[in-house]
Amino acid sequence: MGKYASQASSQQQSIKNAGGRRRLILWICFMLLFLCWAGYTLINQRSQIADMNMELINKETTKTETDQTVLQLEYEVNRLQDPEYIGQLARKDYGLYRPEETPIRPDISSP
């Protein structure tokens, strides 16, 4: 009986080891799947963050350009309150002169 008892206990031991191995393999498979999912998520989020950073930089550049344009337009609006500037625009852009002014035109044909 000793021989059969040892065989029975070794069969029970191997059955327990087989169950433990199965649990270990399942746990390793689960951990691999989890790590793959976590890696994919990390890489995906990094690319989204990089895209958003580029978009932010582009919008900040556009905002800076728009702010500069607004400042330039405000400056020109303030200059339009000055009668001397209005006179310069009338002379330069529209060819309008005061009656007492004589326009001087350069000779275009000479180099």
Rank of each mutant, 00 (worst) to 15 (best):
Q72L: 14
N17W: 04
D82S: 06
L56T: 10
G2D: 14
D67W: 05
F34H: 09
L32G: 02
A5H: 09
I28W: 06
L56W: 04
D93V: 08
W27I: 12
Y85E: 05
M54S: 14
A38G: 02
M52F: 05
R21I: 11
W37H: 03
T64F: 05
S10C: 06
L96D: 02
E76L: 12
Y40E: 01
N17S: 12
S47D: 07
S6C: 07
A8K: 10
K59M: 13
Y4C: 08
N17L: 13
T64I: 11
C36E: 03
Y75A: 14
A8F: 07
F30W: 14
W27T: 15
T64A: 15
P83W: 03
D93R: 08
L96Y: 02
Y94P: 01
R22W: 04
W37K: 03
G2S: 12
L24I: 12
M54T: 14
G95Y: 03
Q72F: 08
V70I: 15
I43F: 12
L96H: 02
A38R: 05
E55F: 09
L89D: 06
T61E: 09
F30H: 10
K16S: 13
D93C: 06
S10L: 13
G2H: 07
Y75P: 00
E65V: 04
G95F: 02
Y40N: 04
E65M: 14
S6H: 09
P83V: 02
T102P: 02
A90K: 11
N78H: 12
P111H: 09
A50N: 10
A38F: 05
Y75W: 08
Q7A: 14
E65G: 04
E60K: 12
L35W: 05
G2F: 08
K59H: 11
D82C: 04
R46F: 05
I25A: 12
M1T: 05
A50C: 06
S47K: 09
S47N: 08
I25T: 10
Q72R: 13
P83H: 02
Q11F: 10
Q48R: 15
E74L: 15
L73N: 07
A8P: 00
D51A: 12
G20M: 10
F34P: 01
T41N: 01
N58G: 03
T66I: 09
E55R: 14
I43A: 12
A50F: 03
M54E: 15
F34C: 08
R46N: 11
L33P: 00
Y40C: 02
T102A: 01
G87L: 11
W37C: 03
I86S: 13
I108R: 04
P103M: 01
P106Q: 11
L96E: 05
I25M: 10
L32F: 08
T69Q: 14
I86A: 11
K3P: 00
A18V: 06
M31P: 00
W27V: 12
Q48S: 13
I57L: 10
R105P: 02
T61I: 10
L42D: 07
R79P: 01
R22M: 04
Q12G: 02
